[in-house]
Write a protein that binds this DNA or RNA. Structure first.
Lengths: 354, 354
DNA sequence: CTGTTAGCGCTTTCAG
DNA sequence: CTGAAAGCGCTAACAG
């Protein structure tokens, strides 16, 4: 069976192609008798419009490109799912490109979007937005762009992001209220921008937006300051985002013999790893050291003890990003969207009573 | 800045559009001087070909559609990532549609693929392949299809799937070799096809392929038979695929007072939930009851005790599916691909010594 | 309200 | 080796 085109339908229904076109675009100005005949013919012949042809003609498509580092990480998968659901809801298709966290691939993805005929782009940049010129490429084609998951990385573009500063602030404040004063901070990085010194230099600069960890560090610092405490370098450790990294980082941290009574981790996996390392040393959680995770993943309920964790809502990032995008596609004016996070309290944190 | 088209480039480079076309399609029969001039102009003007126009003209695209239940579940996310990586590698773009596990949405996704101008489809059906007619729609348009993740669901189409029968067989045999004889089986379903009786009726029928759990049950049964054991209904429990479900199912199972010394779970989450329920009753794992999970997720290493688990490789399903698809796009003949799984042995299983 | 017609941007014969 | 021209499937003036 061959592809059936609009003119096949027109011929079979004994009408002109424009009539068929009007019917499939639900143009009201079609006689209902004709409409029914066309609809029936479409059904009978199994006609499905060719989206490419339509987009060539119209000069725009219903295709949204989304560039995302990876989908293997639950958070990004959530973003994607939110974006897909919203897109589907609004009648758009979604083209996904995975940058793998590599700058070169990221650029390639951006170029692909530009050539794909996408009518809009959701861009979830890797930490360092190095692909600026490629982004420009897309932008100069008049394709609206929404930045997801990062803050302040591309001036003039709407950003949709979690309020990481607030999330860490809330968590830190909670610990402080429970009498904790020596709160360690495991600064999670996919690829650290350098040593701890470099990281600290980036804090409170424009480069901050590219790293959620720096946002959180700022919130952590703000809470400390409210209690008259300073950011102490000994309490900061660079870590990754997986279980082994949490374990290793804690081993390393313990070896420095730094006094501490709480810890804020980059995610639940790191928290679980850190707890495992502490358990080996018989450090009791939450009594001796209180632990706060991040993401409130499934793991948070499974860990022993169950983790107090900052719940994000990455699904909403994707969803809102698409909504914003479509809004601007329809001529609306859009700005940044900051999504709140929430502290979920469980058994890994307790009042300090020693 | 406006979109720059092929004729803009032609004009600026002082050549015909066909020459530009030949250059961008790396047609060798172009004078190298002209080629350089064209390439330079393309670069200078920031020209990017319009993929839609190309696909209208050529009648096919480099767009692969992929229909997947959701991306929030790690396994499917892995499939998608594998598919995206392979597609990118081979020069294809990927259109993702999420069916949400609902039949109606599934049909809608299939229709979208048909109209999207995709040159091929990776279809990861929800358990019951109800969208047959919509699949036909795609198929009748001459779009090659590869079924991912399921076995035997659509006759005549290549399927890429995990060898679930073998996975469960291996796990069960391992338990038997360790002296376990009363092996409980938690049959995981997203939406159970009915009561336990219905499930058993489906076993060893064509309907089996739609449910990985039934595949596994067959492998479980095969291993039992090798030890002269029968499939016992009391040892079977229908469960879901999440932590609470594992916990609840174990509570329920314990209340039946059925004698058992091992358990095979639908995934690691269920295993973790089941272990939690047993811990409450002071049932020791692995001594009293040995536990085997499935998927070898990150959780398997985090659970206490660490889980023995069947490692799948869903990433490879996506990757192989795309490879197969592209192969058939290029005129190759392709058949089913069955991917092996592997038993990862950890602390939740032990020899029975009582 | 319906049909005719002219392209959208691109590839691909077919001449030169 | 290069250019002119036709046309992919579709939509949107423009007539009727």
């Amino acid at each position: 069976m061959q592809k059936v085109t609009i003119s096949d339908v027109a011929k079979a229904a004994n009408v002109s192609v424009s009539t068929v076109s009007r019917v499939i675009n639900s143009n009201e100005t079609v006689n209902s008798e004709l409409r029914d005949r066309v609809l029936a013919t479409i059904e009978r012949m199994g006609y499905i419009p060719n989206a490419s042809a339509r987009s060539v003609r119209v000069g725009s498509s219903n295709l949204i490109g989304i560039v995302i580092p990876t989908v293997r990480i639950a958070t990004f998968a959530e973003v994607l799912q939110g974006a897909m659901d919203a897109a589907m809801q609004l009648g758009y298709r979604v083209n996904v490109y995975s940058s793998g966290g590599k700058e070169q691939q990221d650029s390639w993805c951006l170029d692909s979007v530009a050539s794909s005929g996408a009518c809009g782009l959701i861009y979830c940049p890797i930490a360092s937005v190095g692909a600026q010129s490629h982004l420009e490429q897309v932008r100069s084609r008049g394709i609206p762009i929404v930045i997801a998951f990062r803050k302040n990385v591309v001036p003039g573009l709407p950003h949709v992001y979690m309020d990481d500063e607030m999330g860490a602030y809330t968590a830190t404040k909670y610990l402080l209220q429970r009498g904790r004063r020596r709160i360690a901070f495991f600064a999670g990085f996919w690829s650290p921008p350098g040593s701890l010194e470099t990281v600290l230099k980036l804090l409170h600069t424009d480069g901050q937006g590219a790293y959620t960890t720096l946002e959180r560090m700022a919130g952590y610092q703000r809470a400390l300051q409210e209690y008259g405490l300073d950011l102490e370098k000994e309490l900061l450790t660079i870590s990754g985002f997986d279980y082994p990294s949490g374990y290793q980082s804690m081993k390393k941290f313990l070896s420095t013999l730094t006094d501490f009574d709480a810890i804020l981790c980059g995610n639940d996996l790191v928290a679980a790893g850190a707890m495992a390392a502490m358990q080996e040393q018989n450090i009791s959680v939450p009594e001796r050291v209180s632990v706060v995770g991040y993401d409130d993943s499934e793991l948070a309920q499974i860990a022993h003890p169950q983790l107090t964790s900052v719940r994000q809502n990455p699904y909403n990032i994707g969803k809102r990003a698409v909504e914003i995008l479509v809004q601007s596609l329809r001529g609306g004016v859009v700005g940044d969207v900051r999504l709140p996070s929430e502290l979920i309290i469980r058994a890994s944190t307790a009042v300090k009573d020693f």
